[in-house]
Amino acid sequence: MKKEVSDNVSKDEVDLIEMGKFYFLNGKYEEAISEFEKALKINPKNEDIYFNMGIVKEANNDRGAARKMYEKTLILQPDHKSAKEHLDKLVGIRKGRK
Protein backbone atom coordinates (compact mmCIF):
# COMPACT_ATOMS: atom_id res chain seq x y z
CA MET A 1 0.00 0.00 0.00
CA LYS A 2 1.36 3.40 -0.95
CA LYS A 3 1.81 5.82 1.94
CA GLU A 4 -0.23 8.99 1.92
CA VAL A 5 1.86 12.14 1.92
CA SER A 6 0.79 14.16 4.93
CA ASP A 7 -0.08 17.84 4.63
CA ASN A 8 2.96 18.99 6.59
CA VAL A 9 5.40 17.52 4.05
CA SER A 10 6.23 20.08 1.36
CA LYS A 11 6.47 19.31 -2.34
CA ASP A 12 10.19 20.13 -2.39
CA GLU A 13 10.76 17.72 0.43
CA VAL A 14 8.85 14.94 -1.34
CA ASP A 15 10.81 15.59 -4.54
CA LEU A 16 14.12 15.41 -2.72
CA ILE A 17 13.16 12.16 -1.00
CA GLU A 18 12.07 10.69 -4.34
CA MET A 19 15.39 11.74 -5.88
CA GLY A 20 17.23 10.15 -3.00
CA LYS A 21 15.34 6.91 -3.54
CA PHE A 22 16.03 7.06 -7.25
CA TYR A 23 19.77 7.39 -6.66
CA PHE A 24 19.67 4.59 -4.09
CA LEU A 25 17.90 2.26 -6.52
CA ASN A 26 20.66 2.93 -9.00
CA GLY A 27 23.39 2.18 -6.49
CA LYS A 28 24.48 5.81 -6.23
CA TYR A 29 24.72 5.93 -2.47
CA GLU A 30 26.57 9.22 -2.02
CA GLU A 31 24.15 11.08 -4.26
CA ALA A 32 21.21 9.50 -2.42
CA ILE A 33 22.55 10.69 0.95
CA SER A 34 23.08 14.16 -0.45
CA GLU A 35 19.42 14.40 -1.53
CA PHE A 36 18.17 13.09 1.81
CA GLU A 37 20.35 15.61 3.65
CA LYS A 38 18.78 18.41 1.61
CA ALA A 39 15.32 17.10 2.52
CA LEU A 40 16.32 17.02 6.19
CA LYS A 41 17.20 20.71 6.03
CA ILE A 42 13.60 21.41 5.01
CA ASN A 43 12.11 19.05 7.59
CA PRO A 44 14.45 17.69 10.27
CA LYS A 45 11.56 15.88 11.95
CA ASN A 46 10.63 13.56 9.10
CA GLU A 47 11.50 10.08 10.41
CA ASP A 48 11.28 8.53 6.94
CA ILE A 49 14.27 10.56 5.78
CA TYR A 50 16.38 9.20 8.63
CA PHE A 51 15.15 5.70 7.87
CA ASN A 52 16.04 6.02 4.19
CA MET A 53 19.47 7.32 5.12
CA GLY A 54 19.90 4.36 7.43
CA ILE A 55 19.09 1.96 4.60
CA VAL A 56 21.58 3.65 2.27
CA LYS A 57 24.31 3.65 4.93
CA GLU A 58 23.68 0.00 5.73
CA ALA A 59 23.68 -0.97 2.05
CA ASN A 60 27.02 0.80 1.83
CA ASN A 61 28.40 -1.19 4.80
CA ASP A 62 28.59 1.87 7.04
CA ARG A 63 26.99 0.10 9.98
CA GLY A 64 27.76 2.70 12.64
CA ALA A 65 26.13 5.50 10.68
CA ALA A 66 23.19 3.25 9.75
CA ARG A 67 22.61 2.48 13.38
CA LYS A 68 22.51 6.17 14.32
CA MET A 69 19.97 6.83 11.58
CA TYR A 70 17.68 3.99 12.71
CA GLU A 71 17.92 5.23 16.29
CA LYS A 72 16.91 8.73 15.19
CA THR A 73 14.01 7.22 13.23
CA LEU A 74 12.82 5.43 16.36
CA ILE A 75 13.12 8.54 18.52
CA LEU A 76 10.74 10.31 16.13
CA GLN A 77 8.55 7.27 15.47
CA PRO A 78 8.96 4.57 18.15
CA ASP A 79 6.67 2.18 16.24
CA HIS A 80 8.70 2.24 13.03
CA LYS A 81 8.77 -1.52 12.40
CA SER A 82 11.32 -1.57 9.59
CA ALA A 83 13.77 0.64 11.50
CA LYS A 84 13.48 -1.64 14.50
CA GLU A 85 14.08 -4.76 12.39
CA HIS A 86 17.14 -3.29 10.74
CA LEU A 87 18.52 -2.02 14.05
CA ASP A 88 18.08 -5.44 15.68
CA LYS A 89 19.88 -7.08 12.79
CA LEU A 90 22.76 -4.60 12.92
CA VAL A 91 23.39 -5.06 16.63
CA GLY A 92 23.17 -8.84 16.43
CA ILE A 93 19.70 -9.63 17.80
CA ARG A 94 18.24 -12.48 15.82
CA LYS A 95 14.58 -13.26 15.57
CA GLY A 96 13.33 -16.28 17.49
CA ARG A 97 16.12 -16.40 20.03
CA LYS A 98 14.87 -17.31 23.49
Binding site: M1, K21, F51, I55, A59, S82
Partner: peptide
Protein backbone atom coordinates in the same frame (compact mmCIF):
# COMPACT_ATOMS: atom_id res chain seq x y z
CA UNK B 1 25.74 -7.90 -2.88
CA UNK B 2 23.01 -5.51 -1.83
CA UNK B 3 20.16 -5.05 -4.29
CA UNK B 4 18.16 -1.91 -3.51
CA UNK B 5 14.40 -1.95 -4.03
CA UNK B 6 11.28 -0.05 -3.02
CA UNK B 7 8.72 -1.87 -0.90
CA UNK B 8 4.99 -1.68 -1.51
CA UNK B 9 4.56 0.92 1.21
CA UNK B 10 7.12 3.15 -0.51
CA UNK B 11 9.98 2.52 1.95
CA UNK B 12 13.42 1.77 0.60
CA UNK B 13 15.08 -1.52 1.47
CA UNK B 14 17.65 -3.89 0.06
Amino acid sequence: RKEPYIKEDGDTDF
